[in-house]
Design a protein around this nucleic acid. Sequence first.
DNA 1: CCAAAAGTGTTATGTCTACACCCATGA
DNA 2: TCATGGGTGTAGACATAACACTTTTGG
Lengths: 254, 254
Amino acid sequence: MKTTTRPGEAPEGYDPSRFPPFAVTVDVVILTMTEGSLHVLLVRRGEAPFQGMWAIPGGFKRPPETLDEAAIRELTEETGVDSASLLTQFGAYGDPGRDPRMNVVTVGYLAVLRDVGAIVAGSDASDAALVPVADVLKGTIELAFDHLRIVLDAVERVRVELEVSGIASAFVGATFTLAELRAVYEAVWGVQLDAANFRRSVVADEGWVIPTGRRARPGSAGGRPPELFRAGRAWRHGGPIRRVDRSQSKGLTR
Amino acid sequence: MKTTTRPGEAPEGYDPSRFPPFAVTVDVVILTMTEGSLHVLLVRRGEAPFQGMWAIPGGFKRPPETLDEAAIRELTEETGVDSASLLTQFGAYGDPGRDPRMNVVTVGYLAVLRDVGAIVAGSDASDAALVPVADVLKGTIELAFDHLRIVLDAVERVRVELEVSGIASAFVGATFTLAELRAVYEAVWGVQLDAANFRRSVVADEGWVIPTGRRARPGSAGGRPPELFRAGRAWRHGGPIRRVDRSQSKGLTR
DNA sequence: CCAAAAGTGTTATGTCTACACCCATGA
DNA sequence: TCATGGGTGTAGACATAACACTTTTGG
């Protein structure tokens, strides 16, 4: 057995009062569906380092606030929205040198909004923009710091959350058609889903969507007017991981 | 639109060089299967605050190392083991006042080991111990700081990982019987699994377990000697989230 | 031989996929 | 009326759960 360290206590050879100081920041990956595909909100950096490059919004955690509160504050400052349908912490990043100026550990948060288009337009357009996630993933748009990795992790998290908790409703409005909801899955997962089977999966399980009785207008090309639904309690936020009712199962669920 | 902040840059009204300083620590929740149930490695605190209470092992992140490296270092210092079957970051904790002495943000890591019993015994027994996770969850054993929450989150993470990636193999030895493997699922999920169906689920999907051809000794009560398996490549670590073959599916998988 | 644990077979039941078909609307 | 999307029905493929049955050991 070697050295034993304990939390809140300096390793041997350190003076406990002289712990290595870090800056702690919170970065928020804000995702939304626009023009049929997944977009992320980026801001352009005004100063060095990485001046002029795109980055995800973020800032220092302040001592009197929790990490969650810091994330909410950042989200509000960027979009004016004070309640994201989904705001989840998904990772911490502390590689040495990730910020050339000092030791910075950042905590990544994922926010899903139902359309920040109008909100972003309110800000200086040259300062903030919604860009397709695909462009970031492809490397078409280069990001400052290690923000590419952070966005990558956030997107992977959404893909998983979409399956296990059904945050899909976070991307759509208060009422929505099943086609809109299906489009979320298709865009995030990059697949084609059978509309008939999709409807069944979603409608069958009580609590996912609730019919409002109303109908939306058909598209200009015609077509039967679709039903409007609202989100059920089953997938409000962060929800129950998929693992279906394991208290019953006798075999291994695949 | 309100104030816009950017990463690595102080919010307005702050002097960038005078960022709020934090201590950054890494805490490791070390889990293992002993005596048929899930256990967590705890250390007893020698100093205030929370002197004499149980806590999870951890310590300061050092500037030149990554968070992952810090977690590996802590794990090694506590157990002498330098390669956990599973070592995953699962959360960051930064509530003000979580450490009464200073601003501390800690990053939680989960380590799964195949049996640290012998290793722990090597250390001073009054200093470190494996305690049943159930006792911690029930509150029978009280933990320092916000370590109860951290352990709670780690356990929930294991439950999910067990389903989506099959880290079950991390709990067992290099070779193992299916009964041992099944015991992991049963202990972590708190369910009873049908041995016959379990075998099929695990053996059917190529790559999960590989038969070694050898057999273990039957228990003293007799019984047919069980086959010995070793872990297949399919669930080495962190593996493929469950969501089956998303490139093919046409409906929503439930 | 008997008890115990491992491993195999079998069947009813449920879920998912694909696709055919019907419905309601704009032009 | 036709084209376009929404919504329903259904048969086959596939997966799961339950449990009876066979195998191989210790005592």
